[in-house]
Write a protein that binds this DNA or RNA. Structure first.
Length: 500
RNA sequence: GAGCCGGUAGCUCAGUGGUAGAGCAACGGACUUUUAAUCCGUGGGUCGAGGGUUCGAAUCCCUCCCGGCUCACCA
């Protein structure tokens, strides 16, 4: 059953009723704000501040939402807000005549276009002295603008649930949220610019796939009516981008949404954004250098600094990253030696020593990665590449030539959190087939999240893939780290919520 | 999925068995360079939903819904 549709008009809410009456009054006066289609502005609100020296005394036209309103008898001050900032406006009763009474029909949140001259009040605030004004749209629900003084705010919209469900209000009234979410978009833009300048081609690959591969995760399943078959939503970008590498696009990337049918938490949203890139003729060390360069460049571009701080830890992305072999890191932080992970039995005993519960489906590599997550990751506060991942959890990476139980794969850690995953990509079709077969055995043994066997991809590989380095970066987690937040929901405009 | 915490006015929050409150916002009034404007006054509530205990429930009990945190899951 669908819920009955609620119209604001039907609401008992007194605050809404009052605003509707004001709207009605405006309409009776022939000033219907919703009849307005355009309003010519000469400057953004920020530009008035920025170019004050030239604009002083000049007539300008600006528009924005009323974010504060201070009526003091026959003089009125209001703050307008647009995407670029805020600006005070000033009106005098004797200049406005009977139009001055229209101010009584204004509410916080209404859109106003004004024309007037720029001046400074005696307290020094840059202000537009309004000669003519037009309401451009009305808010018929109260917009919870807080009281502000400088950086201080009172009665801010705090309720996390409301902030996520009604993100538009959060953006409007919480400058921190606005900055954080915009920063995320700028990070993506900076990454694109960085890769484009280096000759990478941005592509789009299918979201609907017969078999979602390229990662270990449970997919969402959907159904195509005309084809009368199920499809899965992609869980990674990898296998299609490699097909493009095979097709001769030597530097390729995609920034796209992937979907994993798993739990929701402060670090997990069922749909999230991945960057994956592939560079022909490059190896793991090239990708490390690329990550260092990428992080140095985008932090400088977006934040104007390469220095970041979180929970009291300072990192500087202008510096080279540390490089440590995974098994060495485990030895360093747990005392466990590589030899302790030779067999499944010994690996289980080793995990037990450091208090890690091992599940039936876990492989040696799975156990090693658990040790990494539980015992090592938290120590990797400074930017660090951990390399040499176990083969059974890295079915798409080349083997280390001298140590075939491990692969040419690294993960990048910052502030104890993984933000990058890269390999020298496995391009041997025979070995790839064997690795998929191994994954198939894991799946048959009950590991729902083992990599699926993708015959179509193997066929492509058999036509020849160049040696290549590949990289995956979780954009959301990168944004979390660079904006200093612990919740993925703070860097996603509309995070997944239960139906409320 | 488990544990803990929370849901009261538009917003932020008090209120642990006895007539639902405060600040801000709203409304009315005063005020022609204010800026958390100020001053005087007024209205505003399905206390998340349902059930129970009780003379009496925002408050105690049960069930459910929604959210947060932690854990589990999730490379």
């Amino acid at each position: 059953m669908q819920e009955p549709i609620h119209h604001a008009l039907e609401e008992e809410n007194q605050l809404v009723q009052i605003r509707l009456q004001k709207l009605q009054r405006l309409r009776e006066l022939g000033l219907d704000p919703f009849a307005i289609e355009r309003y010519d502005i000469t400057h953004t609100l920020h530009e008035i501040h920025e170019k004050y020296e030239q604009l002083e005394g000049q007539t300008v036209s600006v528009a924005g939402r009323i974010a504060a309103l201070r009526k003091m008898g026959k003089a009125t001050f209001a703050d307008l807000m647009d995407a670029t900032g805020r600006l005070q406006i000033y009106l005098k009763a004797d200049e406005q005549g009977e139009k001055y009474d229209l101010i009584d029909l204004w509410d916080l949140g209404d859109y106003l276009g004004v024309q007037g001259f720029v001046f400074k009040t005696r307290t020094g605030e840059i202000t537009v002295h309004v000669q003519a004004f037009t309401m451009l749209a009305k808010a018929i629900r109260p917009v919870p603008f807080p009281k502000e003084k400088g950086e201080q705010r009172w009665y801010e919209l705090h309720d996390v649930e409301q902030r996520y469900r009604q993100r538009y209000l959060d953006l409007l009234v919480n400058p921190d949220s606005r900055r954080r979410l915009i920063a995320r978009c700028q990070i993506v833009r900076a990454i694109r610019r960085f890769l484009d300048e280096r000759g990478f081609l941005e592509v789009e690959t299918p979201v609907l796939q017969p078999l979602a591969g390229g990662a270990a995760a449970r997919p969402f399943v959907t159904y195509h009516n005309a084809l009368e078959r199920e499809f899965q939503l992609r869980i990674a970008l990898e296998l299609h981008l490699k097909r493009l590498l095979i097709g001769g696009i030597d530097r390729v990337y995609e920034i796209g949404r992937v979907f994993r049918n798993e739990g929701i938490s402060t670090r997990h949203n069922p749909e999230f954004t991945m960057l994956e890139l592939y560079q022909a003729y490059a190896n793991l060390e090239d990708i490390m250098a690329l990550v260092e360069d990428l992080m140095r460049t985008i932090t400088q571009q977006v934040f104007g600094t390469t220095v970041f701080e979180m929970h009291g830890v300072r990192v500087d992305f202008s510096q080279p990253w540390q490089r440590v072999r995974l098994m060495d890191a485990i030895h360093h932080y747990t005392g466990l030696a590589e030899a302790d992970f030779e067999t499944l039995e010994s690996a289980i005993r080793a995990a037990d020593k450091v208090g890690i519960h091992v599940e039936r489906k876990d492989t040696i590599g799975g156990i090693i990665e658990k040790v990494l997550e539980k015992c090592v990751a938290e120590h990797l506060q400074q930017p660090t590449f951990v390399y040499g991942f176990p083969i059974d959890t890295s079915p798409l990476a080349k083997r280390e030539p001298n140590n075939p139980r491990f692969t040419r794969r690294f993960e990048g850690y910052v502030f104890g959190k993984e933000i990058a995953n890269a390999f020298s990509e496995l391009n041997d079709p025979l070995e790839q087939r064997a690795r998929f077969e191994q994954q198939l055995r894991l799946r048959q043994a009950g590991d729902e999240e083992a990599h699926p066997f993708d015959e179509d991809f193997l066929v492509a590989l058999e036509y020849g893939m160049p040696p290549a380095g590949g990289l995956g970066i979780g954009i959301d987690r990168l944004a979390m780290i660079l904006t200093g937040t612990d919740s993925i929901r703070e860097v996603i405009f509309f995070p997944q919520m239960r139906e409320g």
